[in-house]
């Protein structure tokens, strides 16, 4: 661990302590430190920017309310990230979960296409955003956050089998989108 890293961790802990004392300046500083990363996560879970901003807003309010619980034992970034993901899941449960079977109406080909396109990250986020809510959440949790199907099942109140099939559908749809995007970009040039 470099000296610079130690310095940054120390600075972060000072800011966290300030937030634990409800210092408004520390709260603003913490927000500035993590807003771009967390907004990126929120965009992945939300279908659009408005939803992403709502998740970011609710997530940071939770962070400031629960920051007393952070005991400096693990990485703060992991902790705040978990709060954001949980906020996104809460919003998903509240707003979208009851569409239930509608999720299954969405179709996509399960092509075996190769991923060769070098696509901009923002474009990939847009593709994820076009997935239905449940597919998007399952894909994020499994492929990008590394949760198991069992854990996803518990978080979303669905069975492991549903989680697996949702992931499978999400992958197929994303694969198709990537292929289409690639073909379109090839034709353009």
């Amino acid at each position: 661990m470099s000296l610079h890293h130690v310095y940054l961790v120390d600075q972060l802990h000072k800011v966290v302590r300030g937030c634990q004392e409800n210092d408004p300046l520390a709260q603003r500083e913490l927000y500035d430190m993590f807003k771009v990363k967390m907004y990126g996560i929120c965009l992945r879970y939300a279908g659009n920017r408005d939803d992403a901003q709502d998740i970011l807003q609710d997530g940071f309010i939770k962070v400031f309310e629960k920051i007393q619980q952070f005991g400096f034992k693990g990485a703060f970034e992991g902790w705040i990230r978990k709060v954001m993901v949980n906020t996104a899941l809460e919003r998903y449960r509240l707003h979208y979960k009851q569409v239930g079977i509608d999720e299954m109406k969405e179709t996509g080909n399960q092509d075996d296409g190769q991923i060769i396109a070098d696509i901009d990250a923002a474009e990939l986020v847009r593709m994820i955003g076009e997935l239905s809510h449940q597919y998007r959440v399952v894909f994020n949790l499994y492929a990008l956050e590394g949760y198991s199907h069992k854990e996803i099942g518990e978080m979303l109140q669905i069975s492991e089998g549903t989680s697996k099939s949702n992931l499978s559908r999400a992958r197929a749809i994303l694969q198709e989108k990537v292929n289409k995007y690639y073909l379109k970009s090839v034709q353009t040039y």
Binding site: Y39, L43, A121, A143, L144
Partner: peptide
């Protein structure tokens, strides 16, 4: 997706 989005950030 994981590789491309691991450091995805936006203001």
């Amino acid at each position: 997706f994981s590789k491309k989005l691991s450091g995805f950030q936006q203001d």
